[in-house]
Amino acid sequence: MTAVVDDMTWLEVGTLDEIPRQGARVLKREQGDIAVFRTAADEVFALLNRCPHRGGPLSEGILYGRNIVCPLHNWCLDLASGEAKGPDEGCAPAYATRVEAGRVFVCTEPN
């Protein structure tokens, strides 16, 4: 799948080193903060930083594999799609990311 995205919407947010492994940092925006995650395997994902359950800050959750567990009530979301797993239903908007020479870009239009 190669989505055609307007170059304007790719935003450089920082370097890979600035995001802790198995952790996240936040891109602050007026339209809603985006959490930028880095997995143990150095993949980068981005989700709107609001849990679909009750708006918990996903950037503060525990990350494992390609999952993030919300700190408020333990919903587990898929980092790639933002979909809640298991019995819970809901989805956090996901944003495309790419890493070039250690620089992290986030597409600020949701997928």
Partner: peptide
């Protein structure tokens, strides 16, 4: 890093 935003955009 824990207490600052990665980036702020307006």
């Amino acid at each position: 890093h824990e207490f600052t935003a990665l980036k702020q955009v307006n």
